[in-house]
């Protein structure tokens, strides 16, 4: 009886996800598309939880639905309010449809093939057999920061590159002027909670679902909330520190990698005895970098006074005016 109910629930989840995905892509109104996309992210988080992948569920809820939602919502502010998706020609639309359907079939085949072809040496078993020397007991963290640490390093580089592009292209978006005392009151309660939760996620990543990306996104959410409640808060940023925080994740990662290369002849080949501590150090730095990167991406460009070199950003009112000047 219970199994049948779960089955019905799962089928409903999948159908709802497909319907949401379809309406997200086919709607003409950008605002509606973004809202539906956020809803789809939340639904996807529930589905990951149902698939017993709590790490992915957490990441999807925080990054996919939360932070991406905030980034998209702040991005569409740059467009006129009645923005519609550009009207593509029927030929173009048909080609996009054919390409998408082909991609779906190809990916379904790849997944099916992967399950069919399993020859008893699944990757998860390899991970499980090496878990004891990885320094952590959570297999997901072991893969992300030990066995496939290279991938994670490059992922951090991708995030950094994206944010550098944002910083090169734009000034920060104009502050919204409306201030809500109620929102400020809630923010004062919520931000400490978010910081604690972020630290918890970072720490717990060693043996349970959590980790740098979730923790970093949570910290960025706290920053975004602060920015929404107190629009001028970014003027108090120490820009020198901000630059350091932006790159510290990759810096520490590469330094650890090189250090381990001196000891063990291979880049990022940790000594098993230190692996746990090294992973924690890297993850802490990565959390700070991811949080900074996502916060800057939310601001949509260089904060006030970014060009003025390494001077501490003063909170004086007319700092807007020296912005364009080349030093």
């Amino acid at each position: 009886m219970i199994e049948i109910l779960w089955f019905i629930f799962d089928i409903m989840l999948v159908l709802l996800l497909l319907a949401l995905a379809w309406t997200t892509c086919s709607t003409q109104d950008v605002m509606r598309a973004v809202t539906l996309f956020i809803a789809m992210g939340l639904l996807l988080a529930v589905i990951w939880a149902r698939l017993k992948a709590p790490d992915l569920a957490l990441a999807e809820a925080v990054i996919g639905a939360g932070i991406s939602g905030a980034l998209l919502l702040s991005a569409i502010k740059d467009y006129p309010s009645n923005l519609m998706v550009s009207h593509r020609s029927p030929v173009m639309r048909g080609m996009i449809n054919i390409f998408t359907i082909a991609l779906t079939i190809l990916m379904s085949w790849a997944v099916w093939h992967g399950i069919e072809m399993s020859d008893g040496k699944r990757l998860s078993e390899q991970v499980a057999s090496q878990l004891s020397i990885s320094g952590v007991s959570n297999p997901v963290t072991a893969v992300l920061l030990n066995f496939r640490a290279y991938d994670t390093l490059l992922e951090l580089a991708v995030v950094l590159t994206a944010v550098l592009t944002v910083l090169i292209l734009n000034e920060k978006r104009a502050d919204h002027k409306v201030i809500s005392p109620l929102l400020q009151g809630m923010t004062r309660w919520l931000v400490p909670l978010l910081v604690i939760t972020s630290g918890y996620l970072l720490w717990v990543g060693a043996h349970a679902p959590g980790g740098a990306f979730q923790a970093g996104a949570m910290l960025a959410a706290a920053m975004i909330l602060l920015q929404l409640a107190y629009p001028s808060i970014h003027q108090g940023f120490n820009l020198y520190l901000l630059r350091l925080l932006l790159v510290i994740g990759i810096l520490i990662f590469v330094l650890v990698g090189l250090w381990m290369m001196l000891l063990n002849d291979d880049f990022l080949a940790y000594s098993p005895a230190w692996a746990g501590s090294l992973i924690l150090i890297i993850e802490t730095a990565a959390t700070l970098s991811i949080a900074t990167a996502l916060t800057l991406a939310y601001l949509g460009g260089r904060p006030t006074g970014w060009e003025n070199g390494l001077k501490k950003s003063a909170s004086h009112k007319d700092s807007h005016t020296d912005n364009g000047r080349v030093k």
Partner: peptide, 12 residues
């Protein structure tokens, strides 16, 4: 938390 968030977002 949901109560607080829902109250504030409704207000906004």
């Amino acid at each position: 938390l949901v109560m607080a968030a829902s109250a504030i977002s409704s207000h906004l």
